[in-house]
Every structure is written in structure tokens, then in C-alpha cells.
Design a protein around this nucleic acid. Structure first.
Lengths: 340, 340
DNA sequence: GCTTAGTGTGTGAACGCTCCCAGAAAACCA
DNA sequence: TGGTTTTCTGGGAGCGTTCACACACTAAGC
């Protein structure tokens, strides 16, 4: 069966109009729920639509209205962040939920290569979407530049330095990192290191800043290692490096749960107990946190709400409402478990 | 600055034509890389495009050509499968990669609610995409029905019973499940149970069938538990149930790595050693497999290749090529590690 | 009975592009 | 030289909508 070659010509608004004995203007009005359509006409049109099997051609509608009722969600995927990052899925779902409520379609675009970047820029310019939510933008993101240039309503999840004026939603990475590090201090740790990651993104650099805030004078640059990715692998390497630099390290702040999980495995291999010898805390409150033995103390970020909020903001922008604030920060929550 | 109200009128092909002193026909030909455009014209047009800042309006192009150069990837998300399933991300990336090569745009649509279903059906009918890849379809999936009805070229990842005639790519779930179960048997286990999941999807029911194949006479219905989701939680519950039913159980086939991970945690709590007392194997070769102690023996499925292959098939369909075979099965690989 | 306001309807003109045909200009061939 | 082919160009028609305007009909107000 499939769908080869010449599909039968699709019914248009003309066919409906002819079948219902009204004009296409009336059909259009009825389709768009406008007033001034008589009951008799409405009824006839409904019957006609069912009879000829009419469905609106959105491309034509787009062209005429200059809007599409679709919002893009753009995900950067450097080295498969997409697979590693526990938050992206939840952000996606939250965004989808909110847009769905407003009867907008979420269109999710993945940037895997430079070629994708260019094509997606075309896509965004092409009138397929009315706005965009951008996740995990890096500093100097070409897509971010393209969007500001196009003038497409857009909201960032996170707050990249390269687009300081763009609306965004995020969490207070710095404050949360400071707070969780303080928890570590409160358990009496003296020699605390950090496994940082993704310093080219705001989340990464802010978490490092928060760590530094909490330690104050005690901050020791030598006890910070950093990696491009928030991955378990990086955690493994990071912990090894830290142990080498300071065998008597007794506290670690890992910039993500995956990092922390890797670090814990290394500690176990090296015969260090957690939290006995070394206290460790993470960030995200993802799957990883619960899988650790002992379970990880971490910072919970409301990823789904971030998605929802970003969607709300972009809808406001699309509808010409100027949002009250340029950026919105959502509260995080410290989850204390057994690891520190 | 954002993007309020009246954006300046965008340059059209007319503006370019006027600026370059040629007709819009010539501009269109040049834009589409057709032959029969003189070098002088080409040059003038290029200059004009840069000068007026022209970008193609895709909506108009769609309308005229009746195709969109975009392919939908439809993900069902019952109770957040999206977050749990380790394969979906890789499938997504594989699909994106292949489509990108062909200069097609991947548009990923998430079905979260019935409302989404209806809207997405409209979207698909609306001419926004030329074809679709459907992931994790359930039996009697309304979207699957809608697609066959619309006659949109589509390829399934997996092979739902409800759409037996539709093209698909997948793995031999049954064969792979049989083979991994045999590995368990080969270690001398006598009392083997299964934690099954998602029996309403082909992957789930086939894995159960393969398990049954391997055990033959030894198959004991009482040693099979099943859950709606491939989640760690289900694994926890499943293992508890199995231990209750048969305290002397010495082998478990979990239908996913996440299930196996949950099961292993329960075994540890109950003082059973792995693989000493109980051998356990999983399915997927995801993150979970490496996180287990000991690491999990499992079946690796080539999720990224599934995505690539599905993309290739849908491109063939879109271009009117009838694929050689209705379904393609990709090879799996058994990964033996420490758990059995 | 004449205006006025409120309803309901039909139609031409966009929207920005591609397709196709006719014809001009250039190149080739005898 | 004249004819044939090839290369290149312009512009009308059409894709399926919405929008704005004009018009028709009804009911009310004086």
C-alpha cells in the first residue's frame, strides 16, 4: 500500500465551499471561529468538511497569516550532551506541556554539526516557527547570533554571556553552588576540591564561581579540575587527578551528579569511604543521585518548570506582550542524602 | 531589544530580481541550483541577495512545491518513557545525522497527551513534513492509524502489530532475548525468572517470547513478572516479587538494563551475591549496564543505526523509491560482563 | 417610510514562491 | 547562408489560505 507517487488531490477550502453552497470566505471564517456565521451555514460546512475529507493546508495558512503556531526548541548537541544531560528531557517535556495548553506545536531541532546550524538558521528564518526556546547554548553560539539577527522572539534556558540582553529563564547556579558547598563545609571538611565542567556555558562557570564564593580564603585553585562535559567519565578522570594532587582531600563538589558518580567510583577503588573519608556533593538531582551508594547529596533543579516557564515567556513575546523582567530565576532545592 | 510588533517587511524574490535587473524566474532558478543561468546573472543575483538581505520564505516554497524538506520524528511519551528510555536519544541523533546529510530538517514532535495527538495529526496533514519516523509506537496507536490514513510516507522504529504493513526497522528482539537467556543457561542456572515490561509494545512482547523459546520445557509462567515501564523502579518491584515466589531463584533476565539495575539493588539488600547466587542479564547496553556492580551482561542494540536506517528508508519513500524490503532488522551484539 | 445599526455573505487581492511556456539570443552544423 | 539545436530569460498562472471591503438582508428607532 504505502504511499507511492501521486496522492489524490487534497480537498481545499473551495471544495468545501462548493459542497456546502457557501463561499470560501464563509468557510474560512467558520474554520477560524470568527463570529458572523449563521447556524445553517455552519452546519452545512461541517457536513461538507466531513464529506470531502478536508484538512487545512498549513503552509498556505502560514503564508497568508505570516505565523505558524509553532515554536522551536533548539538543542545544541556538542559531543552528545543530549544523551548525557539529565535535564534536557525534562525541559523538553515541560516546554511541550505548556505549548500544548496554548495549542502551539513544539518543534524540536537538534544541532549536531555546522551544517545543521546553517540549515536551522534557514528554517527559523523560513517562517516555520513564531518563536524559539534555546537550550544549552554555548558562549558565542552562532544560532544565538542568528536569532537576534533575524529578530525572532526567543527565550534562553540558561543565560549565555554572548546574549546578555535576551530573555532567559534559569536557576541561580552560583547561589546554589555556594549553598551546597557550604553544606560540605558544615560537615567539617578542611580540604575541598571541585570537579568543574562546561566552563564555556553559564551553568559551568557560575557553579565554579559559587564554589569559590563559599570557600573564600580557603579556595585553592590547585584543587579545581575542569572538563568539557558533565559526564561520568570526566568525573572519573577528575577524581583521579584530585587524588594525585592532594591525597588528603576530604571533600568534593562535583558540578553534576554524573561527575559525582564517576568520582565516587574512583574513591571506592582507592579505598576511600564516602562519606567517612571524603564527603561529596553533586548537582542536578538526576537518576545518578539515587543510583549512588550512598545516595548523593545534591541540588535539585526544576527542569520541567524551566521548560514551562520558557514556553510561557516565548508565548508572551510572540503575542506582543513585553515580559515584566528580562530574566527569571527559579528556585533550587538542596537535597541532603548520605554522601556528605 | 526583543522583537515587538511590526518587523520591517522582509525582502522577497521580487526585491532581489529588481535589484539585480533580472526576472524572478531567473532568481528562482539560481536559488534552486538549476542550470541555464548565465554567469553574469548569477553574480548580479548574489550581490543583490546580500544587499537586500534576502532569505527564502519556506512557507511560500512549501505551498508552491507541495513539499517541505522536513521529516517528523514522532515520540510517544507515555509516563515519561522519553526520560527513561536510553535508546531514544541515540535514535534521535542517528536520524538527525542521516537527514542532515540529505539536507532535510528533522522536526521532532512529542506526544504527551491526547490533545497533542490530535494537534500532531493536524500538523502532519498540514504539509509541514514530507514523511515521518515513529518511535516507540504502542499497539493501537492513534497516530499510526492517522498516518496510514493520511498516506504520509512513514517508517516505524520497531514493528507494532497494529501496523503490520508499514515499513519498519528494528532488531530481532525475540532472537536476541533467546540468545542472552541461553548465556544464562550456559552458566548452569536452573531456576530462571524474567522481569518483563511494556508488553503492549512489540519490543516487550518479543523479548518475552524469546525468553520462552530459550527455556523450552523449563519455562515457568510463575517466574515471569511484567510491568508497564522499562524503569528501574519496576525492576525493584519485579525482583521483590520474584524472590517472594521463588526464594531459590538463581537467574534473571531483565527486559532492560534499568530493570536489571533495580533488580540487582534488591538482590544486594537481600544478601544475594551477583553472579554468585544469582546470575542476571539485561537488554540495551545503556549507561545502566556500566554503572552496575558487577557490570551487566546485556544485549547491545545499535540505536543510532536504527535511527539512521529509518531516516534512509523514509527518504527513499519520499523520493518515490519503493524499498526492497518492508522491514529491516539490524544485528544486535551480546556483551558479556560480570553479572552472569 | 427612511435611516441606522447589526448580521451574514461573496469576492478580489494579497502572501512569496515554483512551474511552465514562449520566445530571444547564442552556438553549432551543413 | 539558413536552419537547427542549445542556452538563457521573462512573465503568466497557480499553490490554498486569509484579509479587507462591498454588499445584502433584517430589525429596530424615530
Amino acid at each position: 500500500m504505502a504511499t507511492s507517487g501521486a496522492r489524490p488531490r487534497r480537498a481545499t477550502i473551495f471544495d468545501v465551499a462548493a459542497e456546502a453552497n457557501v463561499s470560501r470566505g464563509t468557510v474560512s471564517r467558520m474554520l477560524n471561529g470568527e463570529p458572523y456565521v449563521s447556524d445553517s451555514a455552519r452546519e452545512a460546512i461541517e457536513k461538507a468538511i466531513a464529506k470531502v475529507g478536508y484538512v487545512r493546508n498549513m503552509a498556505a495558512r502560514n503564508l497568508a497569516t505570516q505565523r505558524s503556531k509553532a515554536i522551536a526548541l533548539i538543542v545544541h548537541e556538542p559531543h552528545s550532551v543530549f544523551l548525557e544531560d539529565p535535564n534536557i528531557g525534562a525541559i523538553l517535556l515541560g516546554t511541550n506541556e505548556r505549548l500544548s495548553e496554548a495549542d502551539y506545536q513544539l518543534v524540536c531541532l537538534i544541532i549536531g554539526s555546522d551544517r545543521d546550524s546553517a540549515r536551522i538558521a534557514d528554517y527559523l528564518r523560513g517562517g516555520f516557527v513564531d518563536g524559539a526556546v534555546i537550550v544549552s547554548a554555548r558562549e558565542h553560539d552562532p544560532i544565538a547570533d542568528a536569532i537576534t539577527h533575524i529578530g525572532l522572539p526567543a527565550v534562553f534556558v540558561g543565560h549565555p554571556m554572548s546574549a546578555p540582553d535576551m530573555p532567559y529563564v534559569g536557576i541561580d547556579n552560583r547561589g546554589a553552588a555556594r549553598d551546597i558547598t557550604r553544606e560540605l563545609l558544615a560537615t567539617g571538611r578542611k580540604k575541598i576540591g571541585m570537579i568543574a565542567a562546561a566552563l564555556d556555558r553559564d551553568s559551568g562557570s557560575e557553579r565554579l564561581a559559587g564554589f569559590r564564593d563559599a570557600l573564600g580564603d580557603q579556595f585553592d585553585e590547585n584543587l579545581v579540575v575542569d572538563f568539557p562535559l558533565y559526564s561520568r567519565d570526566s568525573g572519573v578522570q577528575g577524581m583521579k587527578a584530585l587524588l594525585e594532587r592532594a591525597g588528603d582531600i576530604d571533600g568534593v563538589f562535583a558540578a553534576s551528579d554524573a561527575l559525582a558518580a564517576g568520582a565516587m567510583d574512583v574513591l571506592r577503588e582507592h579505598g576511600r569511604s564516602v562519606p567517612g573519608d571524603v564527603g561529596i556533593v553533586g548537582f542536578d538531582d538526576s537518576d545518578w543521585a539515587l543510583r549512588c551508594q550512598p545516595q548523593l547529596s545534591t541540588v535539585r533543579q526544576p527542569a520541567d518548570l524551566l521548560g514551562r516557564e520558557a514556553a510561557s515567556m516565548v508565548l508572551e513575546l510572540v503575542n506582543g506582550v513585553t515580559p515584566e523582567t528580562r530574566g527569571r530565576l527559579l528556585p533550587t532545592e538542596i537535597k541532603l542524602r548520605g554522601s556528605a
